[in-house]
Design a protein around this nucleic acid. Sequence first.
DNA 1: CTTCACGCAGTTTTT
DNA 2: CTGCGTGAAG
Length: 667
Amino acid sequence: MISLSGLNPQQRQAAETVEGPVLILAGAGSGKTRTLTYRIAHMVDNLEIPPSQILGVSFTNKAAKEMRERVHSLLGRRKSKGVTLSTFHSLGVKILKSEITKLGYHRNFSIYDTTDQMSIVREALKLYKADKNFDRKIVLSKIGYLKNRGISAEDFANTRHFNGDDPYDIATEYVYHFYQDKLRFYNAIDFDDILFLVVKLFKEFPDVARTWSEKFQYIMIDEYQDTNTLQFQLTLGLTLAHNNLCVVGDDDQSIYAFRGADVSNILGFEKNFPGAKVVKLEENYRSVMPVLSLANHVIKENKNRREKTLWSKKQSSNLPELWLTGDTDHEAQAVVEDILKHQSDGGHLGDIAILYRSNTQVPPLEDELRMSQIPYTIVGGQKLYERKEVKDLLAYLSVIHNPADQMATRRILNVPARGIGTATLNKFLEKSQETKLDLFETMRQHANLASGKFNSINEFTSLIDWSRTIFAERPLPEAIGLLVERIDFFSYIDKSYDNAKQAERRRNDIMFFIDSAERFLKYKGPKASLEDFVEKVLLQDSQDKRDEEDEEDDDVRKNEVTLMTLHSSKGLEFRQVYLIGMEEETLPHKKTVKEGEDIGEERRLCYVGITRAQDKLVMTYCKERQLFGKKTPRNPSRFVFTLMDKDLFIHKDVTSFGHLSVEEADA
DNA sequence: CTTCACGCAGTTTTT
DNA sequence: CTGCGTGAAG
Ligand SMILES: Nc1ncnc2c1ncn2[C@@H]1O[C@H](COP(=O)(O)OP(=O)(O)OP(=O)(O)O)[C@@H](O)[C@H]1O
């Protein structure tokens, strides 16, 4: 029996209202996620609702994982096991895996990332000859924009989004069709398709939607302010058979508008789900009052927001601080030095987070942390599967699993070099187009197409066939190992880099990749399939080293500092937070300052950052910053600059403080 | 077909 | 400063 005494009366009411729509709209740290996790525990343990009927969705992997851990610690591993806790995207893939044939794709579809998408768009634009040179990034983002609003290539021209006078729209029209045709031919879908196709499926086959809706009788969605049109429609589909939907969010923390997120989903919840019980929470249990005051002042400036009261019982005599530092290296030094002090005072490093606007701010921090031997982890950032060699290997796996995957086939065709270049490739591409046979099959059946390449082509196709057998017979990590051996991948890597250090790093990436297959096998058991593994890697389902093994220290953070972007920090909390790069053109990012006034989202980002801190908050900005290799003078962010003399934080000039950098010492 | 060199464009944020 | 894409030479 789970006791709900850990909740305040409002929270408790939300947790106990299990039937019908419920909305919790409340500020940061007011216990929204906590309420959700107790609600799940309550349903399973007290109401004896079968866990398999419960679905908890969130937006990012981090948030999903956080939720899983919290539910674990309430219910214990055994009882929480059957509860589905995932992101929208992994839920989408799960649904597509079992239903996609209805849409004319095959079950073994590949999932394409931005690089693959770009290549296809590039090809399309090459074919779409025009005097103007189109930027494929713009075209691709238009396609993504459309998809996230549920608009297909066929519909585009008939929507208000289409402007017949805009050459880009006309180009996009063409490219979108081409792109979608190719994906289908390659039996591949992109990230946006994951949700787009589920929605399409639900629309065209209402009974399928109904089946899924019946499976998940109780649905909870965290960070609901970040849902976009597609996710909203998906939600509608999942609630076809009932209206047991509990959503949780904060319009002040909506930070994914660039991805189509639409706050009107949460603000209009009562309209969309009539009879919804609305719960407001006003007590913040996370932060100390001075931190919260600053946060409240920062967010107050935004227009079009729901006013909220937010207060905390936790007092503190320490105000947040804003440090002026020299340059990015010095900023990193100042932060690291402060962390060292914390460490020598016996502080735990797991209590500390360094947050920043963009991943480009990481390198100086990494250098300093390494030099000071402070353990740290970076969340997000350079992803394992984005490293070139890992992508290559992943492409092998994709072709083995889905031979129709042309992008993957082309990627590995000449990696390692087999003497099959563009000339040969083009011959096969032509043939493939002509016969409607996929590229791989074309090579198998018409190996003699390119004179002199007969042997190389044959070797390639039989390599893949051989691999398929291996992967069917051997455990995953072993099979990958054998493949790496067979293509002599390590020698290929060594040959590709004259710098021995680089080559070693790349080899390590591969080793790490095999390691993660090993962990995957351990976690999944012997039935761990190639397909599941690839999916997991692509969805970033588990990008950090530690997997489900170490059960007991689930709620104990490791003794290491956490580095992440403001975006990935949402929903988390740390005793001590360093919010670096509080500068104009960094926190209100340059791009948003230039393009009209959508500063509101940047301000919310700042709000999110501040409200991650429980006890201590340090914000830093630089006097100057290396930009494109040039020193550029910087100014403090307007978000705090305008609050300078209100005693909300202490402004410190630390430029003359701390270790001198090597250059300064030499000077 | 591979390799190398040069010019350039780009730096949000995530699945 | 880097990392990519293009083009010419080997
Ligand atoms: N009723 C309560 N009693 C004690 N602690 C609470 C209570 N409610 C929430 N907390 C604590 O407050 C902190 C913030 O809670 P939680 O993360 O659920 O807030 P949230 O509203 O989801 O925040 P955010 O909007 O930032 O995601 C957590 O440490 C949580 O354990």
